[in-house]
Amino acid sequence: MDLALLRTFVAVHRAGSFTRAAVLLGLSQPAVTSQIRTLERQLGRPLFHRRARGVTPTAIGDELAHKAAPHLDALLRITEAEQDAAGEMRTLHLAGPPEFLSLRVLPALAPLIGRGHSLRTTFRTGAEETLDGLAAGHHDLVVTTAQPRGELFSATALCDEEHVLVAAPYWAAFVDPERLRAEGPAAFDGIPLVEVHESLPLVTRYWAAVFDTVPDARLPAATVVVPDLRAVLECVRAGAGLAVLPRYLCREALDSGRIVALPEPAVPPLRTWFLVVRAGSLALAHLARAHDSLLHAAVRW
């Protein structure tokens, strides 16, 4: 059986689409379609059900994919090892939120630069857009808080991020601890709000986890909206209002007293970060090395 046909078949099986597989393989869609039809003729069985949106594997297709994919990945690892031994420069394309990439991911990957790696980074705040770019082959590895499903992606939990409700000392002085215990977020009435989006995603998640409620009309619309958590932190430090921030981002400001954590719940709200790659791509040596480096670094985060 032709290995090129099997490689195309596994790519389609993982991608769930002839079009998407063609992009990843660097082929035209008609070429991918032709190769799958050739393989189906050789086997005498259909491998995919054609749908309005992509394809789904038949039982025979699933069986063949689970048998063939590990061996194709192993062949790719052998090829990659030879290229790695030859000292070829490999470029890793990353994508994810600007704050987490800037403060966590890129510093952790910096030691790889001296080992034949180069990095290219794309800042993406939306998980769907980021994963679409990964599926289309624009990125090799993405960092996101959305855990994807399906055959196309492989996701590994990286770390948990604790969220903290913070404000400058001036605004924190307006929060009555007794009222906070009795009335919950009503104690924040009249305090301005800083957020990354008009929909208040971080505040809404925090309110649900800590106060078992959602922000109501008494909480003002965000006074400052800026799509970068580092800018949110600087606004809070300057006295613009309260905000929900990851603890790693604001730890120094908290320790110095420039900002104050308002309630300190017994069980802090957590958000999990995932490393996501296309299925099978960890056979690429430079990608596997970066993946492992991030997992080891995250132990110290």
Results as ranks from 00 to 15, higher is better:
Pro169Val: 02
Val175Tyr: 03
Val210Thr: 01
Val196Ile: 15
Arg237Glu: 12
Ala157Lys: 06
Ala31Phe: 04
Arg179Trp: 04
Ser256Thr: 06
Ala283Met: 01
Pro192Glu: 05
His291Met: 04
Ala208Gly: 06
Arg45Cys: 10
Val277Trp: 04
Phe18Glu: 12
Thr8Ser: 12
Ile191Lys: 00
Met1Asn: 02
His291Cys: 03
Thr204Val: 05
Ala74Glu: 15
Arg289Asn: 08
Met89Val: 13
His117Tyr: 04
Arg53Ser: 12
Pro192Phe: 04
Arg20Ser: 14
Gly150Ile: 00
Ala217Gln: 15
Ala285Phe: 04
Gln29Ser: 11
Leu229Ile: 09
Arg205Thr: 05
Arg179Ser: 11
Leu64Pro: 07
Asp84His: 09
Leu275Ser: 02
Ala127Asp: 14
Leu229Ser: 13
Leu5Asn: 06
Thr56Cys: 08
Pro57Arg: 00
His49Leu: 13
Ala168Gly: 12
Lys67Tyr: 09
Ala297Cys: 09
Gly126Asp: 13
Pro98Ala: 15
Leu76Asn: 10
Leu103Trp: 06
Asp62Asn: 11
Ala15Gln: 09
Gly54Arg: 01
Ala290Thr: 03
Ala74Phe: 09
Ile113Glu: 08
Arg115Asp: 15
Pro169Lys: 01
Val260Arg: 04
Asp2Arg: 14
Leu27Ser: 06
Leu284Gln: 15
Ala4Phe: 11
Thr156Cys: 05
Arg149Cys: 10
Pro192Ser: 04
Cys250Ser: 02
Leu254Lys: 06
Leu43Ile: 06
Phe9Ala: 04
Gly114Pro: 05
Ile191Glu: 00
Val143Met: 13
His93Val: 15
Trp301Cys: 10
Ala86Gln: 12
Leu27Phe: 07
Phe274Gly: 06
Arg53Trp: 09
Gly16Leu: 00
Ala95Gly: 15
Ala283Glu: 05
Gly239Leu: 00
Glu162Arg: 09
Ser28Tyr: 06
Thr144Leu: 04
Ala172Met: 07
Leu109Tyr: 02
Ala168Gln: 10
Thr223Asn: 10
Val12Asn: 00
Leu43Gln: 06
Arg237Trp: 01
Ala59Lys: 13
Leu5Ala: 09
Tyr170Gln: 13
Ser256Gln: 14
Arg247Ser: 01
Ala81His: 13
Val32Gly: 01
Ala127Arg: 11
Ser118Glu: 14
Pro192Arg: 06
His197Phe: 11
Pro169Arg: 00
Val142Ser: 03
Arg90Cys: 10
Ala261Gln: 15
Ala95Asp: 10
Pro98Ile: 10
Arg218Trp: 10
Leu294His: 07
Leu294Ile: 05
Leu219Ile: 13
Leu76Ser: 11
Asp212Ala: 12
Gly96Tyr: 07
Ser293Asn: 06
Ile191Leu: 02
